[in-house]
Amino acid sequence: MHPTLRYLSGRLLTTALVVVGAVTLLFALTLLVPGNPASVLLGPRATPEAVAALAERMGLDRPLHERLLMFFGQVATGNLGTDVISGRPILTMVMEVLPFTVTLTIAAIGLAVLVGVPLGCYAATNPGSRGDRVAAVLSVSFIAMPNFVVAIFLLLIFSIWLDWLPVLGAGEPGDVLDQLVRLILPSVSLALGWVGYIARLMRSSLLEVLGEPYIRTARAFGIPDRKIVYKYALKNAAIPTVAILGLGVGRLLGGAIFAEIIFARPGIGTLVYDAILTRNYPVVQAGVLVVVLLFVLTNLLVDLSYAWLDPRLRPQKGVA
């Protein structure tokens, strides 16, 4: 088998195992959480008969291993079942909100890269300068500030005081401009911490690469600094940042929940959060499954991108 194919199939197998492990762990956790899902869902007006009936409809009367097997069976057939409360297919519920979370994540990570990488490059190419010190203070401040605090401040400044940007929702369907405008504050509030991380990481890795012998050689050949930094050094210095981005996308997918709640946006985070509060486990499982899938796929892509960034990391024939 071609080394790349072998590498890829190995990674895919690991990915599948991670997904199975995560979902099994989640199932086990549902045992530890107190609260009868049926009575929580039906609320104080529910009769014992209605609670028992709902518990049966949710499959809560079956043993855990049976429910787990049933869930994997549903996943395998692409049918995650029907939500007992709304009567809607769970897969539809998840797929309806998934684009909002993915868009928010991409916007946030994109913004973090667009700001963080140049900030890190500037700091690395001007070490010890006033700009470097300012960038350091800004980066650490961004990292230290909790996202929800940033979100509230952004809302106060841009929505209330300046009245520039709206507070609620994801925008009118079909109105791209409205959707973009309503994406600004949530994505900035999510991105700010990552700007700091990426800037600090970029600075340190670029400084390290700029001290490598091949860079000194390039300078000795009289190649302009700008070309050395952006053509030769940046690509190698980017590897740790790309690795962090892979984790970042995963964390943002799961962590977008606070932005979704504060900005009242639909998304996987709010779907899962609401489902946890009501112990609606089938929806929780479906939501978490999708997040886990996206997380492991992103990391798979990141792993594969190492090879593109650094030929030394490409799978070789005869090398395990």
Partner: peptide, 17 residues
């Protein structure tokens, strides 16, 4: 408009939404 967080609702009210 479903808005869970009371503070968000307050801000949305203030902003006219």
């Amino acid at each position: 408009r479903p808005v869970q967080d009371p503070k968000t609702a307050e801000l949305a009210y203030r902003s006219g939404e």
